[in-house]
Design a protein around this nucleic acid. Structure first.
Lengths: 220, 220
DNA sequence: CCCCCGCTAGGACCAAGGTCCCATATCAAT
DNA sequence: ATTGATATGGGACCTTGGTCCTAGCGGGGG
């Protein structure tokens, strides 16, 4: 039961979100100038002077965001902060920006899943492009691959959804019927509507799309 | 048609494979010394003098493998070769080793999914560790974290496999039959055997497992 | 109060999937 | 030459899936 309670946010992303950019750099002048750059490009910057400060103030935020981290900092280093965030399942992309970068350092950061890695001096345009791309990526992560299938799921009635989950579980119509305490005939009706509403033509396709959309199958 | 032509390595991984290490470097002396190093560590090296040569001779191999690529080479560069391999859905990890590496280059390689990136001179121990780790990773990829489904795939005949891919694509038996130029009856036979050999009871299950095992569906 | 929507379901059919048994043909290995 | 694995299908038969059309029932909103 539940899921799609009330209103599946039908038209999310009505307008393009600007996107939050967290900046963590212990050099205040760098922080402010980066913030200025980001603001001028239409993003919402927020600067922190250390990893600890960021962690304390981190609000989770709702929409798409990304981090710009310095590697060398007093206290928590950028790489340490990254490890910490990765462990706590942070999904938002991290872009490194450092004055003293070398290949092994960049490789390590990338292995940990960094989105990008720049050395100063950095080309503003390149950095902005990377930030923009990072925000897009995060948006996609947040909204689960924006597939039209997901929206169509919202068109299903509760009963249809239940039947669909049983189908995803590989159940026969008669099993679904028994499971739901209804006639096999009715299951067929629901099932047909599910296929039609979701715009799929085969169970194989249904399963694929559902996996992508994160729909859990139902045991029968 | 293609893909695992001929022989699906029937009894892969009977005994612990040491792991194949493909070396692509246009400096012959580097290639042979790397090969020697790998052999001494118990791996099975195979050296190529260019990306083109590697592509021509690539045999697919059965077991776990990895690549050691130079970045700068005559003809196809390491990064280009990597892109090409990624596009063709190569799963085996790529380790870069280059004399003239810089941060942007390493970042690009890592973004494309490189397993590691070293600059010469490289510490033998580090390189060997990376290779060993890459082989382990590849083995895990190949065997899809011990799912029995993957092993069972090896029990399918070429024809059965083709039919299965069509089923994964959501095709009807008659469409599969037309596609393969055989009778619908025969498709049913193959299909039945596929389900039986793979130990699944529904198309839904088949699709799920196949996705996990990385089997590509076939358009019909 | 009535209508629409969702849930239910029967009848009638037809297409598709699946399984037995059996049979032929090819190819490679013994 | 014989055997085994593979691919191919015919016949028969049953189960499932899917779609028409029709229709009763209950709830919420105009």
């Amino acid at each position: 039961m539940r899921r799609r309670a009330g209103r599946p946010p039908r038209n999310s992303q009505a307008k393009r979100m600007p996107g939050r950019v967290y900046i963590v750099d212990d050099d205040a002048s760098v922080g402010t100038s980066l913030a200025r750059l980001m603001r001028s490009a239409g993003f919402e910057p927020e600067a922190f002077a250390s990893g600890e400060e960021y962690l304390k103030a981190a609000d989770g935020h709702g929409g798409p965001a990304c981090l710009i981290l310095d590697v060398r900092m007093e206290g928590l280093s950028g790489l340490e902060l990254q490890k910490h965030l990765v462990k706590s399942r942070m999904t938002c992309p991290i872009i490194f920006l450092t004055g003293h970068g070398d290949v092994p350092m960049s490789v390590q950061a990338m292995k940990e899943g960094a989105f990008d890695f720049f050395t100063k001096p950095v080309d503003d345009k390149e950095l902005l492009e990377s930030v923009s791309s990072a925000l897009e990526t995060h948006e996609r992560i947040l909204s689960g691959t924006d597939c039209p299938f997901r929206d169509r799921l919202g068109a299903l009635t509760a009963r249809e959804f239940e039947v669909m989950r049983c189908v995803l579980g590989g159940a026969l119509n008669k099993q679904i019927a028994a499971h739901l305490g209804i006639a096999e005939k009715t299951v067929k009706v629901h099932r047909g509507r599910v296929m039609h509403k979701l715009g799929v033509e085969s169970v194989a396709e249904l399963v694929r799309q559902s996996i992508e959309a994160g729909v859990e199958p139902s045991e029968v």
